[in-house]
Design a protein around this nucleic acid. Sequence first.
DNA 1: GCTGTGCTTAC
RNA 2: UUUGUAAGCACAGC
Length: 445
Amino acid sequence: MTQSIGQTLPGLIRLHEAARRDRRLRFNNLLHHVMVELLEKAYYGLNRRAASGVDGEDWKSYGEGLQARLIELHTRLHTNRYKPQHVKRIWLTKANGKQRPIGIAAIEDKVVQQALAWILEAIYERDFLGFSYGFRPGRSQHQALDAVYMAITVRKISWVLDADIKGFFDAIDHTWMMRFLAHRIADKRLLRIIERTLKCGVDENGKRERTVVGTPQGAVLSPLLGNIYLHYVLDLWVHQWRKRMARGEMTIVRYADDSVIGLQHRDDGQRFVRELKERLGKFGLSLNDEKTRLIEFGRFAQNNRAQRGKGKPETFDFLGFTHMCSRRRSDGGFTLKRYTIAKRQREKLKQVKQVLKRTRHRHRFDVGRWLKRVVQGYLNYFAVPGNRRALDAFRAEVCRAWLRALRRRSQKGAGLPWKKMARLIRQFIPSVRVLHPYPNQRLRV
DNA sequence: GCTGTGCTTAC
RNA sequence: UUUGUAAGCACAGC
């Protein structure tokens, strides 16, 4: 299990342990942990190649005269004179053509937020419940997927609720957020800095707006604040509901604002959705109705549905995979099958082809090396148990795209490195027979 | 075990 | 004009 940097800093380890010893302790005088030394560590922990914020300052330029700047920042923080700058808003075009806003905080504010994030993390990592996976040190989307797999295959789960919170990060209520933080933090100065960060405002081409709701996009602190919000709004509540209200078995896996809830009984599911909506509503949140469904799913769903004259169970999407009910080939028992969401795979392939197309014109670019890195990056993602088919299909597709690009290059007079290609393809798809291209100049994958 | 490049995914 | 957190992989170094 890996740890975050925050958990290795001497002062913060003590915080971490104090939080564990006393679950109700409210921490005072937290701001004294924000020392010049911590700010410096925070600076070096930031992404060095990130774009500059509203003041045009990037990582490198901020580093000139760093010590003096950090000392000055430190005194501003401790004399209540620190005010975060506006977050620069830019619009990105997504793969599907829609526009998505992104926020770029000023580098100085990122430094402050990184230091605060380490402090909050030292406290809250002890409080968070085991079924929360998103944005937490030592926890990944694969672990969340495994948890869903285990829940559905070993527990008595017949119904699955796939719940998605509508515009979660933009919907966070500042007043509630500050109240939640006050459960663990008594230091008014620290709370004030966090509140100012929430209310820093956005700047779009010089036009400034206040932020009255939501946690700023692109802020270092945002993922952690989101987890803290849902810890109080959802996690603790679900935990109680499972113990007190559920008639049958119940499991939950949450990754940021995306949750999968497994239930034994249908009426538990229906009651839970109703009460969940009510609960979220109290805190300014609502479910995304198109993406939220209660479906019959699991070990018993196939037979139950067959008896009622219904078809195969429905499928649900979670963390990039389509989950479906299936049977083992050996004994016909239940298994959970996961496939990469087909649409995303096609989008990715399109991007790979685009890059390959561009490389035609760059001679000094080593396509083989690049492809090796790219495909290896994908390996980990696709190599989830039950998804072998998608992996092989994708690798084959990438190799074909690569071949086509090289073939075009050869038409421009460059020779084809057949031997090298054959070796690479064998490495990526061991099961495939790579035929030598001569004399008919065709390589089949 | 830790750092640093490069790449991928999730949200 | 490509932000944030987390995880993984490859390569390099100690």
